[in-house]
Design a protein around this nucleic acid. Structure first.
Lengths: 237, 237
DNA sequence: ACCTGAACACCGTTCAAGT
DNA sequence: ACCTGAACACCGTTCAAGT
């Protein structure tokens, strides 16, 4: 088994795989895991599968649909915490969702634009609604709130996944921090007064505060479309 | 001045404009207004300016920086309402910001990724912080909350600007609505119970509820990083 | 009937070679 | 010293022509 004596082709191709939707999606997920969703292009996929890009259109209607299928697949890996108060489990589930998006650059941006509706998405939705119900949040508020919570998680991930961390991103942050630091206190009194508070906190602390903020707001903001269920009181935290 | 007798070249070129950052940004804004930010590419811009794409890199470091400059310019057109309670004016200002993003497809997506830090962005931030201060929201919560409010507005706009409204978008929505309608009530009890509530409400009603939800949450969720200012009480609405 | 090569219409960015 | 033509390395999608 000495790797030096073992002959090895540059890339092991077990014959040529028969094309199918399943093979395409599986290959796309491999690329996503290795290099991020941005590299999952029709042409790249075709190259990987030893065919021309036109062939893929027999199984996948377009790039957006392919990305949506990959997203739903990844949603299956979101794990909910098993213990704690309902708020903690809710926050944990949302944090896990955010982490999955952050782990694969480009996934978040796609989740923001694609209307997800696959089975894994529905399962995640159900879990979120279950936790809100457990916390006594009225149905109408939970129904609208769950969208807001998902949007917050997705948008936060998209914001962070945008920057490749390479170069200009740090500069942008520094530039904003400097602009806030040196702002004219006559024209921008509030920014000057708050100063460092505006840039404080690690990303995960900001995310956690955002979830708690939303949960508190959802619990106490009546949905004007739902049956009157406004008597519920939920404790702040 | 009869337009039929007035000779008119296919495109009036007042000689060839001297290249400069200002000319590039101005031309880019024209394209954005007419066809959306997505059409603002280095090559398209170069074509419009009668030169090669390489020439633009003398004045603009890359496409992302150009898009950020355009965004900040558009932020200057966000108008705040002059009357009403602080919550109404805050919601109005955020709605105006959202409308600007929605008016120019691609702007929202860019706002989500680019760290905005231009003068118009700072002015908008100041106005938002001023309104939160007027409402008695403690500084630490306002400092973190303002980011959350902007993110919610930006993400909502990005979500809606993604769909060109052309074709597959309606199908996606119908598919999700159908999936929710026909969900198995044993595996997905909460989705089944809430049913139509999950899809109810016009986009602007959802957006408004989202802002109110966030404002309510921000006012009553302590910022763990700021000085203790937890005694503030703000009425629900 | 099913599949796909080749084409159409684009991209961002760099760099060597010109003025 | 300054500017840019041309090249490199890509895109998504369609459709006529093949098997």
């Amino acid at each position: 088994m000495d790797p030096r004596t073992e002959p090895r082709s540059r890339r092991e191709r077990p014959a040529k795989p028969a094309l199918s939707r399943a093979v395409i999606v599986a290959t796309a997920m491999e690329i996503t895991r290795a290099e991020g969703l941005r590299k999952v292009t029709m042409r790249r996929l075709a190259r990987e599968l030893d065919t021309g890009p036109a062939s893929l259109y027999v199984y996948v209607s377009n790039t957006a649909a392919l990305h949506a299928a990959i997203l739903d697949e990844f949603l299956g890996t979101v794990e909910a915490p098993a213990e704690g108060e309902w708020q903690e489990r809710l926050e944990g589930l949302l944090t896990a969702y955010t982490s999955v998006l952050l782990a694969h650059p480009g996934l978040a941006a796609s989740a923001l634009v694609a209307r997800p509706g696959g089975p894994r998405y529905l399962a995640l939705l159900e879990r979120l609604l279950g936790l809100l119900d457990e916390g006594g949040v009225p149905g109408g508020r939970a129904a609208w709130g769950v969208d807001t919570l998902m949007l917050h998680a997705t948008a936060t991930a998209a914001e962070h996944a945008g920057r490749d961390g390479t170069d200009g991103e740090r500069e942008d942050w520094d530039a904003l921090a400097h602009a806030i630091d040196t702002v004219d206190e006559r024209t921008h009194p509030r920014i000057a007064a708050l100063g460092a508070d505006l840039m404080s906190g690690a990303p995960h602390e900001r995310l956690s505060w955002g979830f708690r903020t939303l949960i508190n707001g959802i619990a106490r903001t009546p949905n004007p479309f739902a049956a009157p269920d406004d008597d519920a009181a939920v404790a702040d935290r």
